[in-house]
Simulated scan of single mutants.
Amino acid sequence: MSAPALRPFLPADTPVLAAIFVASIEGLTGDDYGEAQQEAWAAVADDEDEFGKRLASGLTLVATLDSSPVGFAALKGKDHVDLLYVHPGAVGQGVAAMLCDALEKLAAARGAKNLTVDASDNAAEFFAKRGYEALQRNTVSLNGEWLANTTMQKPLGDAGGPK
């Protein structure tokens, strides 16, 4: 299989990215969230028009393997990772790391001193390994269910430092 590649989000990507979003939640979060929580979370993509507007409102990158989308990430403003999802079939192939690297570089180029993310419990370890530190625990209501996440932050700008 070829190496993952990045490209900008196009409105026509919305259905496949919505499917990746749902597959990621259903396939990767079961150890941390109950079935009702997963269903409420995945329902965010039920309205594809609204989901597409959310993707278009930030700087969204699409990761591909052999030209097929397998993940995506979105930068909200200049300093917040709004979304980062990878299809379960592409986990472990460097897709999430490549997406996160790109968002970190873009945020730094936009003048951000830090990059924040509200990491789901299953993603917190990924971000911690990348140098993000937990700032606070959050509980959010989503479609009638309560889900926990952690606001994490990484300082940017030390381009020569370790990754």
Rank of each mutant, 00 (worst) to 15 (best):
A134D: 07
V62D: 02
D31T: 11
L75S: 04
H80L: 03
S67C: 06
G94R: 00
L28I: 13
K105N: 10
A63G: 02
A112R: 05
A109H: 12
L55R: 07
A19Q: 11
R54M: 01
K78L: 09
L17D: 00
E39K: 15
A90N: 00
G92T: 08
A56I: 08
N114G: 12
H80K: 10
K76V: 15
S24Y: 14
A97H: 13
V44D: 06
L83D: 01
A73K: 11
A23W: 06
T116Y: 13
G30M: 04
A18K: 05
Y85F: 15
G30P: 03
G89K: 09
Y85M: 14
I20H: 10
Q38R: 14
A74M: 14
V95M: 08
A119Q: 09
K78G: 14
D79L: 05
V91E: 06
D49L: 11
A112M: 09
D101L: 11
A123H: 04
Q37W: 11
V16N: 01
V91M: 11
N122Y: 06
T116L: 12
A18H: 04
A109W: 02
A119K: 07
A90Y: 00
D46A: 09
E48P: 00
A119S: 07
A63L: 01
E104F: 06
K113D: 14
A97M: 12
L55Y: 04
A56H: 06
D118H: 09
D47G: 08
L28H: 08
A63R: 01
P69V: 05
